[in-house]
């Protein structure tokens, strides 16, 4: 994938997921950026996928129920006491 130019939408779409995941290296990354700046269709697609990905990332955190907080807190205290000698 090194040194390739992204000259087609097919190629851009093939790399889009890795691009949005931040997994494209230097040259491929800048090639992708270039394509997205100049190709309206891929840009719309990228924007859509990025927003969907962001919505899914919004599920990352879940309010921790007090019982779980307490349980973890107790665990940590046990470890600290046991390991502190």
């Amino acid at each position: 994938m090194t040194g390739t130019e992204i000259n087609s939408c097919t190629e851009a779409l093939r790399l889009l997921a890795a691009h949005l995941d931040g997994e494209l290296g230097g040259h491929a990354h800048s090639e992708m950026e270039r394509h997205l700046r100049t190709c309206r269709s891929c840009f719309s697609r990228a924007e859509f996928e990025a927003r969907l990905k962001a919505s899914i990332a919004g599920l990352a955190q879940e309010p921790v129920p007090p019982e779980l907080s307490q349980r973890v807190h107790t665990l940590l205290r046990e470890f600290t006491v046991a390991g502190g000698d």
Partner: peptide, 27 residues
């Protein structure tokens, strides 16, 4: 903790299992 619990719930698809999974993970 909120991330671990969030991940655990999505994996287990169950809140109680998710809590157990987080506690075991921390241990």
């Amino acid at each position: 903790l909120p991330d671990l619990y969030g991940g655990a719930i999505r994996l287990c698809r169950d809140r109680t299992d998710g809590e157990d999974l987080v506690a075991e993970t921390v241990a």
